[in-house]
Simulated scan of single mutants.
Amino acid sequence: MKEYIYVGSNELLDLVKKIPKGQVVFDGASVAKWINETDQELNADDEIIATFVVNTFGQLVIADRQSEHVVCAGGENVLSAGEITFHVGKNSVVVTEITNQSTGYCPDIVSWDAAEAALNLAGLKHPEGFTRKFVFRKCEKCGELNIVKEAWYVCVFCDTDLPGEWNIS
């Protein structure tokens, strides 16, 4: 599977030295344990949104939603990254939403394969794909990262056409 390198700011990368990396998810019980140990609060629907990465060992790793993906990953490359929503029931933990929203790694939508494999490894029920997909492209003229919206492949910084294929590395 494709590995994604961190492409964000050095300032955020420096946080890796100060903040512990995320928690590996082995099963639903480890999600519940993480919620309790980190004083996370479920919303009115008994859900919690977290930052996630899939590490290069294929494991799901989670951290507080306000944390940076690069910190969650301990500064390492990832196979996928984004946000994940868990519904926590009395006897179960289920993934209800998952995205590839990470401007630090800008994973392609094909990183779903790694996310799905990690969720399956942890035995978590989940959607059949990213519930919201983010399309990232790097402008070949000005070098800025872009999120493509509504299939409009034009750089918001310099108005140059963006490539159709994922090109961030």
Rank of each mutant, 00 (worst) to 15 (best):
F26E: 06
H87L: 07
Y105E: 04
S102T: 00
K141T: 11
V25H: 04
N10M: 14
F86P: 05
I147S: 14
W112M: 01
A118H: 05
M1H: 08
V93Y: 02
K138T: 09
H87Y: 13
T131V: 07
A50K: 08
G82R: 01
V94C: 05
T96S: 13
A44I: 13
A122H: 03
E116F: 13
D108W: 00
L15E: 10
V135K: 09
D27P: 02
I49C: 12
G164R: 14
E68H: 15
L124Y: 03
Q101N: 15
P107S: 02
N167F: 04
E140T: 10
E116T: 00
L162I: 00
V24C: 05
S102M: 08
P20D: 08
F52Q: 02
D45E: 14
E11G: 11
P127F: 00
L15P: 03
P163L: 04
N120I: 12
L145R: 11
T131R: 03
A114N: 06
N100A: 01
W112K: 02
V154H: 14
A32D: 10
D27N: 02
H69K: 04
S9I: 00
I109G: 01
E128D: 15
K133I: 09
T160H: 11
L42M: 12
T85V: 13
E144S: 10
F136Q: 01
E68Q: 14
A32K: 15
C106I: 02
N91K: 12
P20M: 03
N55E: 09
Y4T: 07
G89N: 09
G58R: 04
N146K: 10
E165G: 01
V154F: 12
